[in-house]
């Protein structure tokens, strides 16, 4: 489904955020992308969605991630940005939710119907007509996920989905992620979240993929995690 070969992202000043990455994500995978701050997780997501320039190749369902293919690729990839404030730019939750589908030609009535279903599924129907600036951080994160689900994406990218959430909201978001059928890539250094939501894990450090493997194989390897700026998940006896 996603085939990445020799992906390099270089920012001004010659800083390489990603350095010759190879990675394959299959349909139905739930891949955890783990790494310390600045490892290159967000850069990988930005490259996947064509938001940042890169060298190398990314293929999504056989289509190269290049300018002319972006409209159709972006219809199939949902990206839940780390800061929900950056994602929710319309005044009300419902307006934000129907923004994408209406842009892609769905009628407003159908989009609102679909929004009602998704809000119900995520158990946040009460947020429908609320103003984005008046809802809490946890609610905003759930609403941001809802806006992405509206696009019926084949792949969803979650960038630190539980950062700055309290335990209750964190659990709500984890349940929501687990309830989504699409292929998922979840970038986080919250390894307990990764353990709860992913079957496969890719460890990234300083722009390079260190190891890709099964969840248990990587998340139980204390030495591997600590040598890459991470710690064992709390649920596995981490500090």
């Amino acid at each position: 489904m996603i085939d990445i070969r020799g992906l390099t992202v270089e920012y001004d000043g010659g800083i390489k955020a990603l350095d010759s990455i190879d990675l394959t994500v299959n349909e139905g995978d739930s891949l955890g992308l783990i790494g310390a701050n600045g490892a290159g997780k967000s850069s990988l997501f930005r490259a996947l969605t064509g938001l940042t320039a890169f060298t190398g190749s990314i293929k999504f369902n056989g289509l190269d991630v290049i300018k002319k293919n972006l409209p159709s690729i972006r219809q199939d990839i949902g990206y839940v940005i780390q800061e929900s404030d950056d994602q929710m730019f319309m005044p009300k939750v419902i307006e934000d939710m129907i923004f994408g589908p209406v842009n892609y030609g769905t009628s407003k009535e159908d989009a609102v119907k679909k929004a009602d279903e998704i809000l119900k599924k995520l158990e946040i129907s009460h947020l429908k007509d609320r103003y984005n600036h008046k809802i809490s951080g946890g609610e905003k994160k759930m609403a941001a996920i809802a806006t992405i689900l509206m696009m019926k994406p084949k792949v969803i990218l979650f960038d630190e989905p539980t950062s700055s959430l309290d335990p209750h909201n964190r659990r709500t978001v984890i349940n929501a992620i687990n309830g989504i059928d699409s292929t998922k890539i979840i970038a986080s250094h919250d390894l307990d979240l990764i353990y709860d939501t992913c079957g496969k894990v890719a460890l990234i450090n300083r722009g390079r993929i260190v190891k890709v493997g099964d969840r248990d194989e990587i998340l139980r390897d204390r030495e591997l995690l600590e040598s890459n700026g991470l710690e064992l998940p709390l649920s596995m006896g981490g500090r």
Binding site: T49, R74, G78, Y79, I81, D86, Q87, N103, K108
Partner: peptide, 19 residues
């Protein structure tokens, strides 16, 4: 911030025309 907002908009099909 504007860049991130815009990114979020074009990922959801924004092509310069608001509804």
């Amino acid at each position: 911030k504007a860049d991130r907002n815009y990114g979020s908009m074009i990922l959801r099909g924004f092509n310069g025309e608001f509804y």
